[in-house]
Design a protein around this nucleic acid. Structure first.
Lengths: 224, 224
DNA sequence: AATTAACGCTTTGTATACAAACAGTCAATG
DNA sequence: CATTGACTGTTTGTATACAAAGCGTTAATT
């Protein structure tokens, strides 16, 4: 298997926890590869900021609350812009793609049972497809290039596991607003709606972070 | 020497031209290294988009006119935002850094003799320091992370070799406007001035690209 | 007992050797 | 004459071996 993808997934899925040191030898054994391809994969992850260099080797980056705030600020900026440009440049095909992805998203939400991992993964996947449809409609591939590195980060916290049904429904409504704004070529409305949508996502991640923190504090207490 | 830096510089300085294929073996010989560190460097450059994968190995990316337009759009967005945030969050020390860099920039422009490479490099360098001072004042390191990859691209065209004295002086004036807006915490003015400043830079790169194109056409003609 | 020096172990950095994939050429055949 | 097939040389992908740099532990000296 491709070492880069494997390690990246493992970080996102929490197999390698933040702060954990990544040894080349152990990764090589785990993937039944030699150290050479592992090193290349690590270099890539390093230049994307998912792992940070230590005096010796690298460790999984630990994103702070501040990081999340800043990263989401960046994302509102980029993706808000993408939405506004999509409104100006969208073709019929673009609109079709967005509608398609969003219908799937809606269906998946209807099927949703709380705490069912597979159904959540499905939802996350179609949500991503909707966002990607917009980004590719904005006529600026470079935006996509940078956004793809920004979007990964919050995934590390897997906060969507905690989504409640009403949050998903609200998200779906906003999607529809964004979609119709783009269809009507109302670029400013598209930008604002997208920006707000992403801020809502940020709030949920931050709330989830608080939950984690509490649990951590509880754990600390039981140790005494 | 560090392979990553070396190759990057070589691409920027035009030693490796766009479209040129980069063989591992030849790079290794050139740097008196083995292929292993070369491959790691290439993987990094690839994930930054400076080289693109071929069926076999990589080649130096050829940025089109469209790429430049899109990249500058991105840069106005990011750096305009950075300027507006810098206006909100700047400390006294931030202001000092900006003033320092800009003074150096002004001095270098006064010393400027057209077509003197060293004096141009000096100017480019202090200009960059000024922009970096703003970006670090904006309280969002992630912006810097992405901007650093955006800013490199136009350098490939080395259009600043062609700068005329009046263009540099205009640029200096805009710097002063940006600086005072930030000092006065006028965030919207800072954003607009920065945005305009970068669009001016884009115009110059695009004009330079036209020049190059003309020369190319002339060359083609002489071949017949 | 504390501090430092030295030793050894672990892990990364680099080189090299080998395997496999691809490109180009030349020849054979329809 | 064109098209296909096999061969060969070149280049990348992977593994392994070796060099060097850090870190921890232990022992010796003050």
């Amino acid at each position: 298997m491709d070492a880069y993808k494997y390690i990246k997934e493992a970080i996102i899925h929490g197999k390698y926890e933040p702060g954990m040191r990544l040894g080349e030898e152990s990764l090589a054994k785990e993937l039944s590869l030699s150290r050479t391809p592992i090193r290349e994969a690590i270099k890539q992850l390093e230049s994307e900021g998912l792992v940070i260099p230590l005096k010796r080797g690298v460790s999984v980056r630990n994103f702070t609350r501040e990081d999340i705030q800043q990263i989401y600020d960046l994302r509102t900026l980029l993706e808000g812009y993408a939405a506004s440009q999509a409104a100006l440049h969208r073709t019929e095909e673009d609109i079709e793609n967005m509608k398609e992805a969003n219908s799937r998203y809606e269906e998946a939400i209807e099927r949703y049972k709380e705490a069912d991992l597979d159904s959540i993964k499905e939802i996350v996947n179609f949500n991503q497809q909707f966002h990607e449809a917009i980004i590719s409609a904005c006529n600026n591939p470079h935006i996509y290039f940078h956004l793809s590195k920004v979007v990964v980060v919050p995934l590390v916290f897997r906060s969507f596991y905690w989504y409640e049904s009403f949050e998903l429904k609200r998200s779906l409504e906003v999607h529809k607003t964004i979609l119709s704004s783009i269809q009507n070529q109302d670029s400013e409305r598209a930008r604002v709606a997208m920006t707000e949508h992403i801020y809502q996502g940020r709030d949920q991640v931050l709330a989830h972070l608080e939950e984690i923190k509490k649990i951590h504090v509880l754990k600390e207490d039981t140790h005494d």
